[in-house]
Each structure stands twice: as structure tokens, then as C-alpha cells.
């Protein structure tokens, strides 16, 4: 599906963010990309849809070489890749619906977009997605009236509107509180599995990554230093990715989390209590 070989990025100021990354994704799985700040996680994700131009290497999505596309072809290729951002990056002054429908911009012409006259199938899909991410009925709310978690749900819906072959997810939870972070992360993983879409997720929270991803990739100073299942992520592996530190607390807190996250939280109980 996705095949990255020898991907390099050197910024104009001389900083080399990526030195030759190789990564293959052959099945629809959620891949968490971990690493400390500045390790190149964001650059890696942005080099795939060329929001950042890679300096060398190749990115192939379903056999299509992305790095050598011209402007128009790049636009068509970007339609295949949905992106979710740390700061949600919604157009704040537009309604939720307009933000979700903007995921179809690559498929509609200028005037249709201008008149907000999207095809009926797109509108239906948008309503269904809003329902799925838990924002049913909020379509006419302006994005700046939503909370952080709700905005990220709109961001997810927008990315999925593209019906993408790949999800690029950049720190989806870094601006959210711990509880909302887990809900959002769970939603992303569920949707990726439901739709059979592979997802590349940058994430800071090691415990959350271990907990939700099918596969974990570790970056350190622009090099890929770990690639394996969540169970392989031992203290030694973390030392390799982040540098020497006592990881026992992190790994343990991960197990605590699993207890808290696995059963559905107790709202039903409280709703039942209210019902009586």
C-alpha cells in the first residue's frame, strides 16, 4: 500500500530532519510513530503528502510515485490521503458542515464549492460521518463554538470525507486533555479498522500508542530506530528511541490505562440512575 524508501529532508536552514527513512505498510493497520520532539515525526508525515517537499527518496502509494508528481497530479494524489492535525486546523468561521464537506474539495469544481452545492452523495456521507463521530445535529454550528475534542471530531470527519487510502494523523491528541485524548484515539483506530484504511499516527504519549496501535515505529534524530508490535516495545527499545530513562513507570501506567479504557465508561449507569 505505502512504500517509503530512502526518504530524506533537509530544511533550507541546513537542519536535516530525516536521513533515509524506509517504511512499508502492507496491510490496513494503525501505525503509531513515536519519538521525542524534533525527531522528525511531523516532517515524515508531511513529506508523504508533500506539505513539506522531501529532498530525496521515494514515496509510493498504491504504486503511484508521489515525490515526482506535478501540481495537478499532486492534488489528485492528495485526495487519496486524509490528514488530521494537532491543532484541528478547521476554518473557524465556517460551519461544521462546510468544514466536513471541504474534504471533497478535490472532487468538485470551483463554482460548486463556491455555491456550497456539493453532490447529494457527498452531503449524505457528511451527515453519516458526523453521526458516526458523535456530532449528529451539530452541522450548522460554527467551528469556533466547539470544544477541542469536538473540533478534532470534525477534523476526523473531514479527513474521512475524502474516502482516503491512507490516513496521516499528526499528534491528534497533543492539544487535548487525557480523557478526550483516549476517546479521540479510540475513534481514529475504530474508523481506520472499520474502513480498512491504514493510518500513520504521530503520537507523544507512549502508553496511548502502545495501547491503541497495531504497530509502532520509533524515530530518533531523523533515523528509524524501532519497528515492531506494541508488545516488543520494551524499556530497552524506549531507551533506543528516547535515550536513557527509567521507563518502568510509563509501562506500568499503560497497563492501568488498559483497565480504565477497555470497558465502556460508566455513563450508562448514571443515565439509568437518572431514569429512575
Amino acid at each position: 500500500m505505502l512504500e517509503i524508501t530512502g526518504l530524506e529532508k533537509q530544511y533550507p536552514n541546513g537542519f536535516r530532519a530525516l536521513h533515509g527513512i524506509d517504511l512499508r505498510v502492507d496491510e490496513p493497520q494503525v501505525i503509531a510513530v513515536i519519538g521525542s520532539s524534533g525527531a522528525g515525526k511531523s516532517t515524515l508525515i508531511r513529506c508523504i503528502n508533500r506539505l513539506v517537499e522531501p529532498t530525496a527518496g521515494s514515496v509510493r502509494l498504491n504504486g503511484l510515485e508521489i515525490t515526482r508528481l506535478g501540481r495537478g497530479d499532486l492534488r489528485r494524489a492528495r485526495r487519496m490521503m486524509g490528514m488530521i492535525f494537532q491543532e484541528y486546523n478547521l476554518v473557524e468561521r465556517l460551519t461544521v458542515m462546510e468544514n466536513v464537506l471541504s474534504g471533497r474539495l478535490g472532487y468538485v469544481g470551483f463554482w460548486r464549492a463556491f455555491r456550497r452545492a456539493y453532490p447529494p452523495d457527498d452531503v449524505r456521507a457528511a451527515f453519516e460521518l458526523l453521526e458516526r463521530v458523535g456530532l449528529g445535529g451539530r452541522h450548522n454550528t460554527r467551528a469556533d463554538a466547539l470544544s477541542g475534542g469536538q473540533r478534532q471530531r470534525v477534523g476526523i470527519a473531514r479527513a474521512l470525507m475524502q474516502a482516503p487510502d491512507l490516513l496521516l494523523v499528526d499528534e491528534p491528541t497533543a492539544s487535548l486533555d487525557p480523557k478526550t485524548s483516549r476517546q479521540i484515539m479510540r475513534l481514529i483506530c475504530e474508523l481506520a479498522h472499520e474502513r480498512g484504511t491504514p493510518a500513520l499516527v504521530n503520537i507523544h504519549d507512549v502508553a496511548l500508542a502502545q495501547n491503541s496501535a497495531d504497530r509502532i515505529v520509533g524515530l530518533r534524530d531523523g533515523d528509524l530506530v524501532f519497528d515492531g508490535g506494541p508488545a516488543d516495545l520494551t524499556g530497552d527499545a524506549l531507551n533506543e528511541i528516547y535515550g536513557e530513562e527509567d521507563w518502568s513507570a510509563t509501562i506500568r501506567s499503560d497497563e492501568d490505562d488498559e483497565d480504565g479504557a477497555a470497558p465502556p465508561p460508566p455513563p450508562q449507569a448514571s443515565a439509568g440512575a437518572l431514569g429512575k
Binding site: R75, R78, E87, G155, R158
Partner: peptide, 12 residues
């Protein structure tokens, strides 16, 4: 950020 997000959808 919002502009980047719209670009990422493949918009013209």
C-alpha cells in the same frame, strides 16, 4: 493551519 488542511485535501 486551516490553509494547510485545505491544501491537504487536494483542493485547487
Amino acid at each position: 493551519g486551516a490553509v494547510e488542511a485545505i491544501e491537504a485535501t487536494g483542493a485547487s
